[in-house]
Design a protein around this nucleic acid. Structure first.
Lengths: 206, 206
DNA sequence: GGCGCAACCGTACTGCCGGTACAGGAAACG
DNA sequence: CGTTTCCTGTACCGGCAGTACGGTTGCGCC
């Protein structure tokens, strides 16, 4: 058990690095096998096929991301009791975290999967979908609390607003990759922060 | 000349459909060759390798996107002389265009390339980068004009704001693919519209 | 009218990659 | 001691990108 799961984890670690660096297709099983110092048979003992590897990768990635969001917004909540302020602090912490990645965010596995849709089976697509819906629910709850205290200046769909957090991060990663500017994602998150701040700020007298 | 470029265009058409539907890797040359009713030799006469196909696909795609943006915002400009209103109308037209695609936006080839970075050569990455910078310049010019008339409520980097148009579209596409909800992209564009509207609206008295 | 070149065709081949098949072995566990 | 877990080793298949290279067809040009 101990030895088995250890090898499995090692395969996942190696595969994750390669996939984030080169994409899923460009990562060969032979290459993973060589790096993990096992044989091809060993790989196929742990994963029936490459699809299963993708699934395991995505599920693990979702757990990690969830844990990061939990930590980030829990810390933000400790710094302010106000739901709006706490959220704004959370976004700033997120931006700082993204900025601390010298080579930019390695890239979301969810997006990688989304762009290779057809070649993955239902299990992978479902896992992907559940992850996004989970993030929507997370941020929706925060916006519900915020909107209860600060009525939005303009009518907005809070589900869509919740999705916007993810949209901006995913889109930001695409942009930073395309531009070769790691900082692009951070800028986008901070713009979203400005949006949320304005949306829920009470009208100021001129 | 006429016959030659005709075949080349046919290859690109077929390849584009397949790539948007299945992804670049999942699209085989054999398959393109069969659909175009040519031989493999014919394909490699037009493109030295698959990378060159990707490059041609991206360059063509950028031209089309540019033309679409030209048309969209030119029509918007005809509807209003005010730069802010024209931009807001342009975003709405963009949203309508995205909504009219029944199966959602087929997916931006630029993003597909961004997520398979390493397997493409410099030429592809450079083309991608130029496209994004072009879009930045386009929207930056609009925001310059807007900001000159309506000072923004909050200090924002206009380049980052210009990038946000693309960010939201690209991120929206990722989200709609992951969720299986084609409408997600439209919602995100309309949220961006709300943001821009608020950012440049003069303070209203309460 | 022949010459040349662009635009292919046909065939045969290489090497990588995902995946299969199957036999066997070491070590931990009960 | 036997079973199960966790692999190794070897051999193989079909699909795919790409190479090599000789042959062919049609159109423009002198």
């Amino acid at each position: 058990m101990a030895r088995g799961s250890e090898t499995r984890v090692r395969i996942l670690d190696i595969a994750q690095d390669a996939v984030l660096a080169k994409g899923f297709d460009a990562t060969s099983i032979d290459e993973i096998v060589a790096a993990a110092e096992i044989t091809k048979s060993g790989f196929f003992y742990h994963f029936p096929d490459k699809n299963a590897l993708a699934l395991a990768l995505i599920e693990r990635h979702i757990e990690v991301e969830d844990a990061i969001f939990d930590d980030l917004f829990a810390r933000a909540r400790e710094l302010s009791d106000d739901p709006l302020h706490a959220f704004l602090i959370g976004l700033r912490l997120l931006a700082e975290m993204l900025a601390d990645m010298p080579n930019g965010h390695p890239g979301c596995i969810v997006a990688t999967a989304a762009y290779q849709d057809r070649q993955f089976d239902r299990a992978v697509r479902d896992a992907n979908r559940r992850a996004v819906l989970g993030w929507r629910a997370r941020f929706r709850a925060m916006f519900d609390e915020i909107a209860a205290r600060y009525p939005p200046r303009e009518p907005v769909d809070l589900d869509a607003l919740a999705d916007m957090v993810n949209t901006v991060v995913e889109g930001g990663i695409v942009m930073s990759k395309a531009l070769g500017e790691p900082g692009a994602t951070v800028d986008q998150v901070l713009l979203l922060r400005t949006f949320v701040k304005q949306l829920f700020s009470p009208d100021r007298p001129v």
